[in-house]
Amino acid sequence: MPLDQIEEEVEMSFLDHLEELRWHLIRSLGAIMVFAVAAFFAKNLVFHTILLGPSRIDFWTYEMLCRLSEILKSEALCIDELPFIIQSRKMTGQFSMHVTSSFVVGIICAFPYAFWEIWRFIKPGLYPTERKAARGATFFVSFLFIIGVLFGYFVVTPISINFLSNYQLDPSILNEFDIISYISTVITLVLACGILFQLPIVVYFLTRAGLITPEIMRTYRKHAIIVILILGAMLTPPDPFSQILIAMPLFGLYQVSIFISARVIKKEQSTELQKVDE
C-alpha cells in the first residue's frame, strides 16, 4: 500500500476519534444545560432553600449542632446567631449569580452522566486487563464526588460561614456580604470538596500504573500533610478554619488511599504468582 494512502487512513482514523469525542462532549454539555435550565427556573429551591440555606440559623447543620449541645449539656456548639446580612451591590449582581449558579448546579447534577460519557470514549482504548481493573470507575468516581459535595455543603460550608460571619477586627465593623462573594464562597467550598474526594481514585490508578506504592505514601506522609494543607488553602476562602476542615477528611482519605494502594499491590503480586504456578 502506498505510503500516502497509509497516512491518509491514519489521519482519517484520528479524525474519527475527534468526531466521536466531540459527540461525547456535546451529550455531556447537553446534560449539563438541561439541569442548568431546570435550576434556573427552580429559583426558589436552588437559591432560597439550597444556596442561601447555610446563611440562616434554621439550616439542618446548625439544628443538629444545637441538638448535640443539648445532649452534651453545653451551649458551645449551638449556633443561634449569624451576624451578617447579604446584599447585592452591583446592578447585574443577582442576575449574573443566578445564571452562574444555575450552570454550576447543572455541572454537579450532571457530573455522573458527563463522566460516564467521557469514560465511554476512553474505555475502548484500554487493554482488557485495564478495563477489568477499571470496572466500576463511573460508580466510584460519582459516589466519591457526591460524598465530597455533601460534606462540603453540610459540614465545611456552614461552619466556615459561621466562622467568617463572627470574625471581626473591631465591633464597629459590620459584616455585610455581597451576594457574589457569598455564592462564590459556597460554590468554591462545595466543588473543592467534590474534587478533592477523588484522591482514592487517583491513588488507585497511579498504583496500577506503577508510579506509587504504599511504602512511598507512608514514607512521604508528612510531606503529604503539607501538600493537603496547601491545597486546602488554595481551594477555600482565606481563613485557617476552612483550610483545616478540608484538610482533616483529606488526610483520612490519604490513609484510606494507602490501604487501597496496598490492596492493589497485593492483588498484582497474587496474580503474578498464579501465572508462575501455571
Rank of each mutant, 00 (worst) to 15 (best):
Y254I: 14
I212F: 05
N44A: 14
I57K: 13
T219D: 15
P112F: 04
S242L: 09
Q255P: 00
I187Y: 02
D170G: 10
I50F: 14
L199I: 08
Y62S: 12
L3V: 14
L273A: 12
I258K: 05
A110C: 09
I246Q: 06
E11Q: 08
V46L: 15
Y204G: 00
M33P: 00
A42I: 01
G93H: 05
K266N: 11
H98F: 07
Y167P: 06
S270R: 09
L126A: 03
F14N: 02
C66S: 11
L211W: 13
W116L: 05
K132Q: 11
L206C: 11
K275L: 14
F14Y: 08
R208P: 04
Y204W: 10
A134S: 15
H98L: 13
A233Q: 04
F95I: 15
P54T: 10
I179N: 01
G232F: 04
Y204C: 02
R131H: 09
H24L: 01
Q87S: 06
V186Y: 10
F143Q: 04
T138E: 09
T100Y: 12
P54I: 09
V104L: 11
A247D: 07
L150W: 11
C78V: 07
V190R: 04
Y113K: 00
I107R: 03
A137H: 01
V202D: 01
C109N: 07
R67A: 14
F103N: 00
L235M: 12
D170M: 13
Q94C: 02
L245I: 08
I180S: 09
T92A: 13
I179W: 04
R27T: 00
E7R: 12
L3T: 14
V256L: 15
T49I: 12
S181C: 04
S261C: 09
N162C: 14
F103R: 00
V141Q: 01
D80R: 14
E176Q: 13
A224G: 15
Y182R: 06
D80K: 14
I173H: 02
M248A: 15
R22D: 00
S181Q: 14
A233H: 04
F259G: 01
L250P: 08
K123W: 07
S261D: 07
I258N: 07
P214F: 11
Y127W: 12
T185P: 06
I187K: 03
A192I: 05
P171W: 08
E20H: 07
I246E: 02
A192G: 13
